[in-house]
Amino acid sequence: MISIFGIPSQALFGQLLIGLINGSFYALLSLGLAVIFGMLNIINFTHGAQYMMGAFVAYLVLQYLGLNYWVALLIAPILVGLTGVIIERLFLKRLYQLDHLYGLLLTFGLALIIQGVFRNYYGSSGLPYQVPELLRGGQNLGFMFLPNYRAWVIFFSLVVCLGTWFVIERTRLGAYLRAATENPTLVRAFGINVPRMITLTYGFGVGLAAIAGVMAAPIYNVSPLMGEDIIIVVFAVVVIGGMGSIMGAIVTGFALGLIEGLTKVFFPEASNTVIFVIMAIVLLIRPAGLFGRAT
């Protein structure tokens, strides 16, 4: 048995792995928040509820249609993204002329509705979701045991995050998107349908949350309240990273997950609060956030 700083390597790396897993969810969720904020100027409080909906889609299609994890991973973001499109068309588009805080209040109300409805039908205890057959078991790396599913979560969220980064920063579509973030009126004058782009952006950001939800389903149970607390942590992540940069959101998400994992090993009492403490320190040293521009 190898030990590091008096802590057996199995425990240390195990916690670091859990930290990375949480970090991938933070990254996916804060990425979605940043993308939505960039286009809509709205902080999407419903994001946690939409993450939960993603997990529920996976659970429900398995339960009632017998569709497995892989299909769920494909259709959950589409379905939840569609509900996002409806929300944007019905509600959010009426708020763009108003103060930011109305967007926050409206999406908060929507989160209460969605979480409340799910809780009424499925209770607040979690429903189990099996790890897909292909990814059961794990690898013994010598210093730790790596479950296949967890490796997959980290790998796939990295792929999704970097894919999103690539689309936004390196393609023509992304260039339109960034241009519309800077100056929507001018981009419209060039004949680009900005309102539709805004709608699709919201759907896409919400879809990212749903992907995170599907991936979380086999690790945590599927529960109506699973998005409730994580969204507040993700808000702190977003404050730390600043929403100006896509890569910033990704890096901050993974890094904070890791730090949280480390805290669980060395000072477990603080593991719930460490991200908030880091937020306070960052506010003192770099008020604009690590990757943010001064506002």
């Binding site: 209040l105 409206l106 908060f108 109300g109 929507l110 989160a111 209460l112 509705i113 969605i114 979480q115 409340g116 409805v117 809780r119 009424n120």
Partner: peptide
């Protein structure tokens, strides 16, 4: 909770 959300 749902009613509160609707009021919001």
């Amino acid at each position: 909770t749902v009613i509160q959300g609707v009021i919001f």
